[in-house]
Amino acid sequence: RHIIHTVGPVWQGGGKGEAELLASCYQRSLEIAFANDCRTIAFPAISTGVYRYPKAEATAIAVRTVGSFLARNTSPETVTFCCFDEPTSELYRRAIAALGES
């Protein structure tokens, strides 16, 4: 019913605040979803395509930011990470499993 649009940072080597900007993309999208009573939200691997953000780092940021938000809020109830290939899916599975172990 809603589309929440966010633009991720272009990877410039990691020293230009990219990690904070990427985390902000997820955080702000979740805040908007929460404010609009969205029960579900889906995210692509933000910035990992033409913006060249390293997938492992981007995945860790995405999972950590979403996990932190969900620990403090009751919604959204379901978060889906949409992955376009198996290697990316595996990165997300590992990051989610590691989050559950901590």
Rank of each mutant, 00 (worst) to 15 (best):
V50Y: 04
T65V: 08
P54G: 08
A45N: 00
T40R: 07
A95Y: 04
S68R: 07
I32T: 05
T59F: 03
F43E: 03
R28C: 09
R52N: 08
A95E: 01
V79P: 05
T78Y: 05
D37V: 04
L91C: 03
A98K: 13
R93V: 11
A60K: 09
A98N: 11
R72T: 11
L91R: 02
Q12H: 15
Y26T: 12
G13W: 13
F43P: 02
I46R: 05
T74Q: 14
E20S: 13
L99P: 00
W11Y: 15
A45E: 01
T80N: 08
Y26K: 04
G67E: 09
A58H: 06
R93T: 11
L91M: 11
T48L: 03
T6P: 01
S75Y: 04
A35V: 00
Y92H: 02
R52K: 13
F84P: 01
I96N: 03
T78C: 11
P76V: 14
L70S: 10
I96T: 05
V79Y: 07
G13C: 12
T48G: 00
I46S: 04
F84R: 08
A33S: 10
V50I: 14
G15N: 13
S68Y: 03
F34Q: 10
R52F: 12
A42N: 03
G15W: 11
L99D: 08
Q27M: 11
A97V: 07
R64Y: 02
L99G: 02
S89A: 15
F81V: 09
G8T: 08
W11D: 07
D37P: 00
A35Q: 13
N73D: 03
S24I: 00
E90F: 10
P44D: 08
R1K: 10
W11Q: 12
T48I: 06
I32N: 00
